[in-house]
Amino acid sequence: MKIKLIDSVVRSFKVAKIFRENTDKINAIDFAPNGEHLISCSEDDQIVIYDCEKGTQSRTVNSKKYGVDLIHFTHANNTAIHSSTKVDDTIRYLSLHDNKYLRYFPGHTKKVISLCISPVEDTFLSGSLDKTLRLWDLRSPNCQGLMHLSGRPIAAYDPEGLIFAAGVNSESIKLYDLRSFDKGPFVTFKLNQEKECDWTGLKFSRDGKTILISTNGSVIRLVDAFHGTPLQTFTGYPNNKGIPIEASFSPDSQFIFSGSTDGRVHIWNADTGNKVSVLNGDHPGPVQCVQFNPKYMMLASACTNMAFWLPTSEEGL
């Protein structure tokens, strides 16, 4: 029994669950590929895992020694990688089964601002304020590839795991073939440079046709993934504190969701560029993380509290 996402369904989402597990801002969330678990990390150095099927919190571990940010599930069960906010800027591989670190990936010398997992294999990309982009393999603490670039480096894998995109200096996107990245990018999109903000995130749509660019301002850009043609500009959500608000695709690539500093979730139509709805969940703080479940009809948004949204309409049948 599957339901299609249409405007009416998107407008009917309401808060069904509220979790007050954290005492400080949640800075990253990630759904497992099967859509059954959600992991979040917070600036209070806590890692919380939720059961999406039951709508409950299933596990909590601490990492007060190193701090946690940009947490992502890996393909193994009960394992995750995250960057550090203390001691140093090493990326750490954590086993949630026995609450033990499995491996460290040292190399970055400044804050890691970008981290993404290959959807196919055990490699991941990390970008840091030290102006380097590194390619790693979970099985070895040695860096597999190093790229020097200027500005804030951001990166993303395409849904097939064959291509990765790198954002350079908030003005160009370079596409690399993972099998021959030593030859350089096979295509470069030069775009109009942002004047008021920096690019803070890249994401491929699930169908692999478009690339979403998040910023630390009040604008979100949509670019064609094959030709780099600018497609849409999404505005209308406030971000008066310059925080890197995350924008996400719905699994059918039709809608774009984003948080804001007014405590609401803003939704646009990716194809037409029209704003569809603004969901008010009464978040007490800025909503930095918003993601749609990769499989089920469920939305998650987080400020200091975590909120699960469910649709109240089933017109998509």
Binding site: K2, K4, P159, P251, D252, Y296, M298
Partner: peptide, 14 residues
């Protein structure tokens, strides 16, 4: 939970 339609399959780290 209800499933979303028109979602391409995820490799899921095969």
């Amino acid at each position: 939970l209800l499933e979303v339609d028109n979602v391409p399959d995820h490799p899921n780290g095969n």
